[in-house]
Amino acid sequence: MVGYISNIYVGVYTVLVGMVITFKQMFKPRVTHQYPYQYEFERKDNYREIPIGNRGQLHNRVEDCIVCNKCAQICPVDCIYIDSRKPSGGRGAKLWESMNVVHLKDRKQIIGIVEGDTKKIEPDTEITINQTVPTGQTRKVSSNDVDRIVERKKVTFYMDRFDIDMALCMYCGLCTEVCPTECLTMVDTLQGIEYSEFDRANLNYSFVKPELYK
């Protein structure tokens, strides 16, 4: 009989303890992110960064592109469409000479010819880069920020069309591997993930900038 009553008592009081705990839980801050409206969660502790090298949306820096057509050839689903045209000067004519592309560590690329020896750069030296395309300005960059320098071949084609159909793309990343100037990349930030559209035609990205060839 004593066991019976104490059983009831323990039952009641443990349920009440549980209820007090859940009641306290009601006033704790929410952990839900209202994602498309709210981006603050990127700063929160429990948010995991998108890893570097994530295969996201494709992006082409047409200033670097030499229209070699390798990406369109290797694409397994044929989602890259490139049309090119030779310049009017006839055989051997080219749009510009070969130059070097300076890749900075913050993943911004700068096109241009580096003055001096391109193979080895001393740390803490200022490098002057002649940005020939499109404006021909010069800019100084600290060599600590430089990630690598890639040679850019001379351009012998006008680019009339460089379209990537992201609705077709299967994110294999082969095109970025074969790209000789490393101008075709996959965006590994949040912008490379969220590009949903209501119309499928809007997923056909065009990267041509006609103003480059004027």
Binding site: T22, Q25, M26, K28, P29, R30, V31, T32, Q34
Partner: peptide, 13 residues
């Protein structure tokens, strides 16, 4: 909403 609050969620929003 009550279930969401107890589980630190926001519920339908």
């Amino acid at each position: 909403k009550v279930s969401a609050f107890i589980q630190d969620r926001t519920g339908p929003m």
